[in-house]
Design a binder for these strands. Sequence first.
DNA 1: CTGCAAGATTGCAGAGCATGCAATAATTGA
DNA 2: TCAATTATTGCATGCTCTGCAATCTTGCAG
Lengths: 212, 212
Amino acid sequence: MSIAENPGLRERKRLATRKAIQSAVLRLATEKGLEGVTVEEISRRADISPRTFFNYFVSKEAAIVGDGPELIESAELESFIQGGGGDIFDAVGDLMAEAADRASEDRDTLLLRRALHKQHPHLFALRMAGMRQFEDELTAVIARRLAHDDPSLARDQAALTSRARLITLVAIGTLRHAWSCWADEENGESLAKRVRDSFDQLDHLLVAAAAR
Amino acid sequence: MSIAENPGLRERKRLATRKAIQSAVLRLATEKGLEGVTVEEISRRADISPRTFFNYFVSKEAAIVGDGPELIESAELESFIQGGGGDIFDAVGDLMAEAADRASEDRDTLLLRRALHKQHPHLFALRMAGMRQFEDELTAVIARRLAHDDPSLARDQAALTSRARLITLVAIGTLRHAWSCWADEENGESLAKRVRDSFDQLDHLLVAAAAR
DNA sequence: CTGCAAGATTGCAGAGCATGCAATAATTGA
DNA sequence: TCAATTATTGCATGCTCTGCAATCTTGCAG
């Protein structure tokens, strides 16, 4: 118990099983197509019982799409909230690029998942569903920044929330754009870089639209 | 065969069955909760065999969320494509508000569906998935308008597509905002009106962001 | 009206998904 | 080493969804 006592044996094993399942389902789905894969076969490859599979994931699909992104540490959040002045979409874009970086797993997993997402749009929808919590957290953070930037807005709670939610959803749309570009590339940039690109394009769009 | 010979008896019956199923599933899910409803019970209420249910919908959930929106008639599309000059988001907002109007069914259905969406976020995700075709059509139309507005852009196919896709996804985000506001109201405006509101807010956001 | 072709409904069988429950096994901390 | 906690597993069960073949309905032409 000298090096790192954070992750005990139990925790490490759990993580390993989780990865094993995800790896198994991704490889199987790639080999035999999504519909041709059964939980039984996944379990055989991952060396667990079929029953155990459902202790980790509620469905085959959930094992494929993985977890949604998570918001960053509180210290950096504070700097986002207080870092007024600049374009808010730029700032949100940075937040998202960092989240994308943090969520990135090994490259093989990423590529397999990407290919499956491309073939099966409904998996993509599942991924969107898994982002709801992220969305809500993001909206809350953006609302705090808006209130900090413009205290007069903070008095009208409804307007504040509405605007924060709109910014969130536009940002999520931009994130989807980044995903879409990333998926279309043969085998290219990191997702984080693509995210920054898309937010840059959004910036150009805004300037053009407002200058009309 | 004097009034309208478009919909024969066959077609009318099919439509009626479809509505009966949707009505049955919405009422049952409202009464007993989404998880407490079986296909068998839905079929009993709709007076069809369970097997027939699956001839109409691929799943319980699909029967609840209904169909995605459809793009408008070609004549109005042409005017969108040629109607350069104005803010493109305004124009897209109009397109969407009209699509929302056209897709609206009877009020009861709408309200039940809304309540269920609120309780079960994953239904909402399914609805988003059902919009993929709409999204793709919208992107194609926007690309044509962009090319019409700025012929020099049309030479760089990749940039054109990328921009059209970004506009589409930002617009979809705004549509989601409209849904979200609409769902939060006790029992209010039409969805189409809400859509216009959200696109107005987007406009303000753009001006503010660009004027920073 | 009649008969035929196309299309819709149904029952049945079967594979797979997903969950609860209770027994068993592994990990933790004292 | 022991007791508490947590994870894994097998079993039973109910529901989802699909393919297939039989039957019935609708559309249409003669």
